[in-house]
Amino acid sequence: MKTRGTSLNPTNRYQPIVTDRSEDDGWYQDPPDQLCPDSMATEVTDEQVRTIISRNQSPDVPFDQSINPYRGCEHACVYCFARPTHAYWDMSPGLDFETRLIAKPGAARQLRRELDKPGYRPSPIALGINTDAYQPVERERRISREILEVLLEYRHPVSVITKGALVLRDLDLLSELARQGLCSVAVSLTTLDNQLKRIMEPRTAAPATRLKILRELSAAGVPTSIIMGPVIPFINDHELEHILEAAAEAGALRASWVMLRLPLELDKLFQDWLQRHFPQRADHVMNRIRDLRGGKSYDSEFGKRMTGTGPYADLIRQRFNRKAKALGLRGERGTEPLRTDLFRRPAGDQLGLF
């Protein structure tokens, strides 16, 4: 599939009926007709949400609140840990995840309701965790921008994670939030190799563009960081030091890393991608991944799922920490401290005048 991360669309784990498409029944002709396209358009369905702030108690992430303006992600990163969540909507974590999106147009309105609740206590909200808040569909829908406008009005802290150049469109809001100590932006930077980016993260911003994002945000006073996530053995691990150097030069203040995770259906999707693009390395990569996960493709245990265990995980940690320290990059998993004491409810402030 052109500009897509995978051409597979495996049945999700909740479907009682499985269709086997592995056998050629002669239906499609050669040359291919329109019934067998080499690419697919993106479909977007709207969802009317009843809640918008998601909460977690995971010790592996530095936030307990997040907002996802969209379900599914057109960026099409083949390694995306969020792919299996598309099964909750009776869709495939494969091609469906990239092409059948769900937007939340009422997100900003619902956010106001939740921030206005008397019992709400502010803590930083991470924007764009399960899927990227600045994926291509945001250009027209502008849901992420509307969310930032509400957060600025309420003086609420927010951290953004993205690999989309569209984040620079909202530089006016981000810089004002940052001026008040309410905002930071992390850029996911997995490779400096354009060819690898093209097959691994087809619809994301180019590596040079992501460095430009860091430079422009930093110049505007927005604290920036990078996440090298995921580190993939024998695919991008050799770039670790070069990525950190480029990020520091572009103005990043912090850096962190995450080891490749292959939960549920993602295991099959990633192994298919390996066989297509790196067949001579595929077994070597998967053997190392299993070494990291106690002989399995994935281990979901807290404290291990983000880094893995064993000599290879220790080596990556040592390389990362040594280079980050030399460059003056803070982290390994820390985030920029954001203020919570400025939070206000605009409607409540007005009522208080009477």
Score class of each variant (00 low, 15 high):
164 G>M: 02
163 K>A: 13
125 I>L: 14
164 G>N: 03
126 A>L: 14
106 G>I: 06
107 A>S: 13
179 R>Q: 14
151 L>S: 01
114 E>P: 05
116 D>S: 15
188 S>G: 12
148 L>G: 00
110 Q>W: 00
186 A>D: 15
124 P>R: 12
158 V>K: 04
168 L>K: 01
149 E>N: 00
134 Y>D: 06
143 I>C: 03
156 H>D: 11
183 C>F: 07
144 S>D: 00
125 I>K: 06
186 A>Q: 13
174 L>E: 07
108 A>R: 02
129 I>H: 12
190 T>S: 15
110 Q>Y: 00
128 G>V: 07
129 I>K: 06
162 T>D: 02
108 A>F: 05
109 R>A: 15
118 P>M: 06
110 Q>P: 01
127 L>K: 12
176 E>W: 00
112 R>G: 06
154 Y>S: 01
141 R>T: 07
181 G>R: 05
127 L>Y: 07
178 A>M: 10
190 T>I: 15
201 E>K: 08
124 P>V: 11
158 V>N: 03
153 E>C: 02
193 D>R: 07
136 P>N: 06
199 I>F: 04
154 Y>T: 01
178 A>R: 04
130 N>F: 08
192 L>H: 13
152 L>A: 13
141 R>Y: 02
176 E>G: 03
157 P>A: 04
154 Y>A: 01
125 I>W: 11
139 R>C: 02
141 R>K: 10
131 T>N: 14
125 I>S: 12
178 A>T: 01
185 V>H: 11
157 P>T: 01
134 Y>R: 04
154 Y>M: 06
113 R>E: 15
122 P>N: 09
186 A>V: 15
102 I>Y: 12
154 Y>P: 01
157 P>D: 05
133 A>W: 04
145 R>F: 00
143 I>Q: 05
109 R>T: 15
177 L>S: 11
169 R>T: 08
193 D>Q: 08
159 S>F: 13
125 I>D: 09
129 I>P: 04
121 R>G: 08
140 E>L: 14
147 I>C: 01
191 T>E: 10
201 E>R: 06
120 Y>T: 09
102 I>M: 14
198 R>K: 15
137 V>D: 09
190 T>C: 14
184 S>K: 05
197 K>Q: 15
168 L>A: 06
124 P>H: 09
201 E>A: 12
111 L>M: 09
103 A>K: 02
198 R>P: 11
155 R>K: 11
107 A>D: 10
182 L>S: 08
184 S>L: 07
169 R>G: 09
162 T>H: 02
115 L>D: 12
196 L>G: 11
121 R>S: 14
135 Q>N: 05
155 R>Y: 05
110 Q>I: 13
185 V>E: 12
154 Y>L: 00
191 T>R: 09
146 E>D: 12
109 R>P: 00
176 E>T: 13
150 V>N: 02
194 N>Y: 04
176 E>L: 13
147 I>N: 00
196 L>H: 10
158 V>G: 04
200 M>T: 15
203 R>W: 11
132 D>Q: 00
201 E>L: 09
114 E>I: 07
132 D>S: 03
195 Q>M: 10
204 T>L: 05
113 R>V: 14
136 P>M: 05
151 L>W: 01
107 A>C: 13
183 C>S: 15
167 V>L: 08
125 I>N: 08
128 G>R: 07
120 Y>I: 10
123 S>L: 09
164 G>F: 03
196 L>Y: 06
